[in-house]
């Protein structure tokens, strides 16, 4: 089995610092956040430029070049509502360290993101939802099948579709958590890949609680076969948990320094 893949979520335009840096094309704050995440062990970096309606392609091109030139072609996930920006980003993207990820398609309005990924030989995060949160796993499965068929029809390798079960907030949807985990198991049983915004589960919890809850969730999800997650890699407890689970799952050979590498 391959090692668990972490996608660092900290380059996000919701952060005022990053928003400002993107507006002013100021590399320093973006490079700083990229370095922190890479040093903490992130495999991929997510680049969220928001809707970026006016300057999407130009902004994404700038960000891709900036990050890959400074960090040895670090692999990236493209996260924006502007599809042209994703295409522009992929045009200048260097695949040496991994295919680009399109983040994300769903079975509803965003289904064309899958087409975009297929046309550009990219990985696609595929949310098993249409409009809002699926009510149960049957619904999740029907969306997943829809996405899988469409992607394969477009010639995609099924392993390039990373299905997102939709992690749900515990404060409010506590009774649905085991469903999410069970669905991850169903994805894994078909030999397919999975990912998702893991920290959704701890939304609204006190700051000191979140790393604990996120770590518990990732461990249980990895037990069920989760292959990747979109996370804050600067959360040390979470990263240590992922690395430890990778050892227990025999995804990585143990050495006393396993937490440092």
């Amino acid at each position: 089995m391959a090692k668990f893949i972490t996608i660092g979520e900290r380059i996000h335009c919701i952060s005022p610092t990053i928003r400002k840096a993107m507006d002013e094309k100021d590399p320093a704050p973006i490079l700083k956040r990229a370095k922190e995440q890479i040093d903490a062990g992130a495999t991929y970096l997510d680049v969220n430029i928001g809707p970026a309606e006016s300057n999407g392609p130009e902004l994404m091109t700038w960000a891709v070049k900036l990050l890959q030139e400074n960090f040895d072609n670090v692999p990236l996930a493209f996260d924006t509502a502007n599809m042209k920006a994703i295409e522009a980003g992929i045009q200048v993207y260097n695949r040496a360290k991994g295919k680009p990820i399109v983040n994300s398609a769903d079975a509803g309005d965003r289904i064309e993101y899958l087409d975009l990924a297929a046309a550009n030989d990219a990985i696609c995060v595929a949310l098993c939802s249409k409009a809002g949160v699926p009510s149960d796993n049957d619904e999740r499965m029907s969306y997943m099948m829809e996405l899988l068929e469409r992607g394969m029809g477009l010639g995609m390798d099924p392993l390039d579709m990373w299905f997102d079960p939709l992690f749900l907030v515990i404060k409010g949807m506590q009774d649905k958590q085991m469903d999410v985990l069970e669905f991850i198991r169903q994805i894994a049983e078909q030999g397919l890949n999975s990912t998702g915004g893991l920290s959704n589960n701890s939304n609204g919890m006190p700051k000191h609680i979140r790393p604990i809850m996120d770590s518990a969730m990732v461990a249980m999800a990895m037990m069920c076969g989760l292959t990747s997650a979109i996370v804050n890699p600067c959360d040390l407890r979470l990263m240590e948990t992922i690395k430890s689970c990778d050892i227990i799952k025999n995804n990585n050979l143990y050495a006393d320094s396993y937490l440092e590498i």
């Binding site: 050979l253 143990y254 050495a255 006393d256 320094s257 440092e260 590498i261």
Partner: peptide
């Protein structure tokens, strides 16, 4: 000892 083999390589690389 495979784990020590890896560990030693890690230490040398560090």
């Amino acid at each position: 000892d495979i784990n020590l083999a890896k560990q030693l390589n890690v230490l040398l690389m560090q």
